[in-house]
Amino acid sequence: MAHLELDRVAKQFGAQTVVDDFSLAVGKGEFISFLGPSGCGKTTTLQMIAGFLDPTRGAIRLEGKDLTAIHPARRGLGIVFQSYALFPHMTAAENVAFGLEMRSVPRSERAERVRAALAMVGLAGYEQRHPRRMSGGQQQRVALARALVIKPSVLLLDEPLSNLDAKLREEMQIELRQIQRTIGTTTILVTHDQNEAMSLSDRIVVMSQGRIEQIGTPQDTYERPASAFVSQFLGKTNDFAATIDRTAMPARLVAGSWSAPAPAGLSGPVTVSIRPERIGFGDAGLGAKIVTRIFQGNHWLFQCASECGPAIVIRQNDGQAQPAEGEGVRLAWRAEDMSVRGGAAS
């Protein structure tokens, strides 16, 4: 049985459907990310799990018990808000102690657990600080400690790192991952940063306009995107219009002067999706001309005009000579690196 289960959950505000047909089973100790563009309903879904919003349809179950019947104050979930929502009139220690107080944890045990929680997030010695006197990263840690100290059955994080600068964000990602691994709390993270989702989660839920586009491991969603939306949203990708040539024996998949054996079960116009770092320059393949060549330290980025429209190619900087701007090249890739979908490229 899944630890946390969402069963065809939907949410409407008036006539507007914001989340629809959302089904997900989260295993115990799993780290799940909700990933999607702004306004796709990530926060709404999280708030329904937290109990701040009631689902219009569907069920949410924790350990098989219906959560929607339980008041948010008694769900026992740990939540880190995007704005942190720290209590500004309380010190860091008082903030962390609040949840324990509500649970009538004895004073001595409370002090010990607060100390341990703050130490875990690397804030030992900051007990008596007020949130306004702490940096964004420190506030974020207090919020995390406050959510974790009550030993929540599920930890919900709504874009907890989006207010931090790039470097701090990376540090906190690593730390968050480590903490979650150590204590093993089931975690749901809302983010619109694909790198964050990739590097932290066991599985990613890609959302668009209130619907689930794909659920899968980071590798799955990146390498085998289930839809054009997913492939576009997760990193750069090339979508080439191709056709299946059934006159050839055996049938072939053709894009410009590039071709490969056709996969089974498809016909007519199709879309070939291929990540830029999986394309190489070869002797045969899709004809293209390099338009711009950009050096980015550990790799080169090429923008090409190919027979099938614009293409992006990324090559590792391995010290080899690279084609120059204006040079004609042939783009080639391995069949297992691409994904082919029915329908023309959009």
């Binding site: 708030q47 937290a50 008694r74 939540i79 808000f81 929502a85 209590f87 509500m102 959510a147």
Partner: peptide, 23 residues
């Protein structure tokens, strides 16, 4: 006030009276 502050208190187990009095 942070618009989420009441939700934060609630998620930690505080009831309406506690939220008004303490937060």
């Amino acid at each position: 006030l942070d618009p989420q502050i009441e939700n934060a208190a609630m998620s930690l187990g505080a009831g309406p009276v506690t939220i008004i009095r303490r937060i």
